[in-house]
């Protein structure tokens, strides 16, 4: 058991013929994810070919990759009808990405992972209003690495081989910082139940509390790592929720203590404005909620293991 995705998850890629979409469709396929097709308007009826390889496949990146041939469709609706896909990863360019999200929701996709970075904020505002009509659909992202249940299903751009199946849930607003935490846990001999990158944008689908709730209810998850950054108040809200509802140990880290106010630090959502959204405020709220917060990202792994009585 894990959350959001497992071996039975059938995945399509929207934007499969773009360079980025093609590269990561191959990556997810090689990992062992059930990739069942792709969508590129105008290229329906053609196929996405994957060549066999001697290595680079499997959960450790060292296995053979079998040849593959994925059907391409003009619309998500057609793809779902033909393949039974229940999840999608979106690599569509920013001007069209919000539309692609709504299309996936309308086609009945259960889990949408939007990897695209740089979507106009107003598009996401409108998109989130539209998604209210599809309560069964969950959006993860945008501007995120995706979701992985190690040794079962990888959807997104994270390097698969750094993960091992285990019982620590990881959720984060940052991509590479998540890899950092995951790698520390793996090198210490432990593994992850599911890792969710919720993304660095100010308006997004899934937020900390949504995932924390899933981890709390998941019997396979025994502890949780939560990685936040400056901007907004999602970490403070999550901390309050954890204090009230969470019985599993949680470790945390907040990036951006040295970020100057009023500047966007790479991520569109990483900005301290009007004295709100500071790292200090977030760390304080998290500590008050009983979360084990570390000062250096080098210590994320050991901090959660200590909190779980394993180090």
């Amino acid at each position: 058991m894990a959350i959001l995705v497992d071996k039975s998850t059938k995945v399509i890629c929207q934007g499969i013929t773009g360079a980025f979409g093609a590269q990561h469709t191959r990556g997810c396929y090689a990992y062992g994810t059930q990739m069942v097709g792709g969508v590129t308007p105008g290229k329906g009826g053609t196929f996405f070919e994957i060549e066999a390889a001697e290595s680079g496949g499997g959960y450790d990146g060292k296995q053979k990759v079998p040849a593959g041939k994925l059907p391409i469709f003009n619309t998500v609706e057609q793809a779902v009808k033909a393949t039974g896909a229940d999840a999608t990863m979106i690599f569509v360019p920013p001007p069209f990405a919000a539309d692609a999200i709504v299309e996936a929701a309308e086609a009945g996709i259960r889990l949408i992972n939007c990897i695209t970075e740089g979507i106009p904020v107003l598009d996401m505002v409108k998109c989130m209003q539209a998604l209210k009509r599809y309560p069964k659909t969950r959006l993860v992202g945008p501007n995120c690495p995706g979701v992985i249940t190690p040794e079962a299903c990888k959807i997104g751009i994270m390097p698969g081989y750094i993960h091992r199946s285990g019982d620590i849930g990881v959720l984060s607003r940052s991509g590479t910082l998540t890899y950092e935490a995951v790698w520390q846990i793996t090198k210490a001999g432990f593994g992850q139940s599911t890792c969710v990158g919720i993304g660095g944008d100010p308006v997004k689908g899934t937020d900390f509390i949504d995932v924390l709730d899933l981890f709390q209810k998941d019997p396979a998850t025994k502890g949780v790592v939560m990685i936040g950054e400056i901007g907004g108040s999602a970490e403070e809200e999550a901390a309050a929720w954890i204090k009230k509802n969470m019985t599993k140990p949680v470790a945390g880290f907040i990036a951006g203590r040295t970020a100057p106010p009023g500047r966007r630090m790479g991520h569109a959502g990483a900005i301290v404005s009007g004295g709100a959204g500071t790292a200090e405020g977030k760390v304080k709220a998290m500590k008050e909620a009983g979360i084990a917060v570390c000062d250096s990202p080098s210590e994320i792994g050991v901090t959660i293991l200590k909190a779980m009585g394993r180090a």
């Binding site: 910082l177 400056i230 630090m265 990483a270």
Partner: peptide, 10 residues
């Protein structure tokens, strides 16, 4: 990575 870049500064 933006998060890692901020963490590095920290």
């Amino acid at each position: 990575g933006a998060g890692l870049a901020m963490a590095t500064m920290d």
